[in-house]
Design a protein around this nucleic acid. Structure first.
Lengths: 132, 132
DNA sequence: GCTTGACCTTCCAGTGCCGGGAACCCCCAT
DNA sequence: ATGGGGGTTCCCGGCACTGGAAGGTCAAGC
């Protein structure tokens, strides 16, 4: 399999796959012409990586998960720990974004959005006093 | 005012303030010794920037908002448009993260998290078949 | 006057995760 | 021979900083 075939199968850009090889996530063989020669196992790994990335795991977490995936004697607790940590981080991000959203929603609703300069958004950003 | 004073007032690291000067968000004066000499107006701008960044606005949006803030003849509609766009992006991010969270929550709950290798998290990432 | 230490300066490199594009090679069809 | 569509490497850019090195400046203490 050439890179574009495996890219289509894994749903990843070829650039990303080259990058993943660069950082050692996959190690495809090489044809005599220098082209990468992907095995089925490489395609499976890339699919795995694509799904893990889509769930927001960092590359380093993906590396760890991939290693556990390949380790038949893994403990599922190790996998779950990584996922649970990541879940926590996501929840923190959601909380941060939700706070931003609430503030912004208020501001956007209180701003007339017309041709006059009075704007509670700028007033809020500008500090307790007016602006300077 | 030296950089550490204004940093304390705006709640931003000195590094960040130098960076903001680099990219033209602020233009502090210079003392004869080469130190940056911040005016009150610089401190106000930095406070503004800190708050806008805390709401997740990109630097370029901050630049635009700052320009509007300084423009006494602005239309509040322009401010609101920027804020509303940003709000949309935040809502998209929240939706993405929420989907990730829901998937992860399910996976984490269905994984026993013990010393045995069976793991629905890996099964889910690994594709329809087992792994290879 | 000299040292100490906190503060300031500039510049360079790195972060995470690729995307864009140059410059070049390889292979197949015409 | 030529054209087009693969592939390859390499380097830069982008977001918004952050860390660190190497060195100038200032106020205080001895």
């Amino acid at each position: 399999m050439n890179i574009s075939d495996v890219a289509a199968r894994a749903g990843l850009p070829a650039k990303t796959i080259r990058y993943y090889e660069d950082i050692g996530l996959i190690k495809p063989l090489r044809d005599t012409n220098g082209y990468r020669a992907f095995r089925e196992s490489d395609a499976h790994k890339l699919t795995f990586l694509g799904r893990a990335r889509a769930l927001g795991f960092t590359i380093e977490n993906c590396r760890a998960l991939l290693a556990l995936w390949e380790d038949k004697s893994r403990a599922s607790a190790d996998v779950r720990a990584i996922a649970a940590d990541h879940l926590n981080e996501i929840e923190v991000k959601i909380a941060d974004l939700t706070a931003m959203r609430d503030t912004l929603t208020n501001l956007v609703h209180t701003c007339a959005g017309n041709s006059r300069p009075d704007c509670p958004i700028l007033t809020s950003l500008g500090g307790t006093e007016g602006n300077g």
